[in-house]
């Protein structure tokens, strides 16, 4: 017997509770669920944004890098934020796009971890594959309700000796590759990463991987107006996740004097 008069005469949600056997307090609300029903405008653009995230597979696992900037339009607004985030023991995610949406995702994933891993306490933990699938369902679901989370996300990790690296974005598009980059990096850094990594994933050690990453970050810093020379690198290997403190990128600007329109030239 359903004691809530508001539910009387309404159809049940067959997908969720086909036999009407859920306890009262969790029984689903079958009110209208239409994207246009509540007559509001959804997100049309990101507000506070992070730029590229880079990632590659190497001998010991995966490496991910991102700078520490969150821009407000063209203003370099927050210069010490963390865009790489640990999810459980085996996974790192990194996001470009809207930073408040990203913070929401972090909270959501933390709650997911508590409900799926901590409270179950049965040895079934979530690895990068599961996290990526979950994120892709979440992102696609949001975009289908015309209310996307405005991010491109890289998910990388190592579990049971298998390394995994994949991408998911605000449309719910996914793909996987041994090198990945989001945002501006997809145009500028991805070709460099491919050239350096593809086909030799198993030959690259951590030092070389770091070198490749910092080279790409440097190029991005020269070319991307929304980037910063402060960055972090995360690795996921068999021994777990490690996210570095923020580091400074070595850059040279001596050549700028010779560039037309930059320095003190008059002509």
């Amino acid at each position: 017997m359903d004691h809530f008069p508001t539910n009387w005469g309404r159809p049940r949600n067959d997908a969720f509770d086909a036999y009407n056997t859920y306890p009262f307090h969790v029984r689903p609300d079958n009110g209208p669920r239409d994207a246009f029903a509540d007559n509001v405008q959804r997100t049309q653009q990101p507000i506070v944004t992070g730029t590229s995230v880079l990632a590659l597979k190497y001998k010991d696992g995966i490496m991910m890098a991102a700078d520490c900037l969150a821009s407000y339009g063209s203003l370099a607004r927050f210069k010490d934020i963390q865009r790489l985030h640990e999810v459980g023991k085996f996974t790192v995610i990194g996001a470009s796009g809207d930073m408040s949406d990203y913070q929401y995702l972090q909270t959501t994933l933390d709650e997911l971890l508590i409900s799926e891993e901590i409270t179950a306490a049965d040895g079934h933990s979530l690895g990068p594959v599961e996290i990526h699938e979950y994120l892709s369902r979440l992102m696609y679901g949001r975009r289908s309700r015309l209310n996307p989370l405005w991010n491109s996300i890289l998910v990388g990790g190592v579990k049971d000796g298998k390394s995994f690296l994949a991408y998911v974005d605000l449309l719910g598009t996914t793909y996987s590759s041994s090198t990945l980059a989001t945002g501006y990096g997809a145009y500028i850094a991805q070709p460099l990463l491919r050239k350096a990594v593809e086909g030799r994933e198993m030959d690259i050690d951590e030092n070389e991987a770091r070198k490749i990453m910092t080279d790409c970050l440097r190029v991005l810093f020269y070319r991307d107006a929304r980037s910063l020379n402060k960055y972090q690198i995360a690795t996921v290997t068999d021994s777990g996740v490690a996210i570095s403190p923020s580091m400074e990128l070595g850059t040279q600007w001596g050549f700028a004097e010779g560039i037309r329109g930059y320095g003190a030239q008059t002509q």
Binding site: P23, H25, V26, T107, E111, I114, S115, T119
Partner: peptide, 18 residues
């Protein structure tokens, strides 16, 4: 059942108060 309810309450408290 009580534990499941507690987890729900825990989740809701956590998201309300961060």
């Amino acid at each position: 059942q009580l534990a499941n309810r507690s987890r729900e309450e825990g989740r809701s408290l956590r998201s309300q108060f961060h």
